[in-house]
Simulated assay, not measured.
Amino acid sequence: MAHTVREKQKLLARIRRIRGQVEAVERALENEAGCEVVMHVLASTRAAMAGLMAEVVEDHVRSHLVDPNTHPDALNAEAVEQLIDVVRTYLK
């Protein structure tokens, strides 16, 4: 997956932020925070993971399915954007 190597530092930065969010969930539970606080932190963690997944999927589509240099007969640009929009919406 060349695109993950190319974007390695950016992806690692995102996952480190997600790790911090997971640690915030742990702290909230350890400190017996209210349900509202725990749910809020969980929701933000889930959204961060979905965003990371959407980014990896988008890069995969652009790199492996529709790169005109590698796949000249690949999907057209409009279809690519529609697919990526659907994936991003689904992962929210």
Rank of each mutant, 00 (worst) to 15 (best):
M49H: 02
E32R: 10
L91W: 00
M53S: 15
V86Y: 12
Q82Y: 04
C35H: 07
G51K: 06
H3T: 05
R88I: 00
H71V: 15
V5C: 04
L12E: 13
D85G: 15
G51M: 00
E32A: 12
V25Q: 00
I15K: 01
K10C: 00
Q82M: 07
G34H: 09
V56M: 15
T70K: 14
T45Q: 02
E36P: 05
Y90F: 15
L29E: 11
E26A: 14
S63Y: 02
S44Q: 15
L75R: 02
A77F: 00
L91N: 01
A54N: 04
I15C: 10
D73C: 02
L83S: 05
E23Y: 10
M1K: 09
A43D: 13
R88D: 10
E32H: 13
H3L: 06
L65Q: 02
H60C: 15
R6C: 01
K10D: 08
K8D: 04
E36F: 12
V22L: 14
S44I: 08
M1E: 00
A43S: 14
L75G: 06
L75P: 05
M39W: 09
L52S: 10
G51R: 05
H71K: 06
G20I: 00
N31K: 13
L65P: 05
I84Q: 03
R16D: 13
L52Y: 10
D85E: 13
V25E: 04
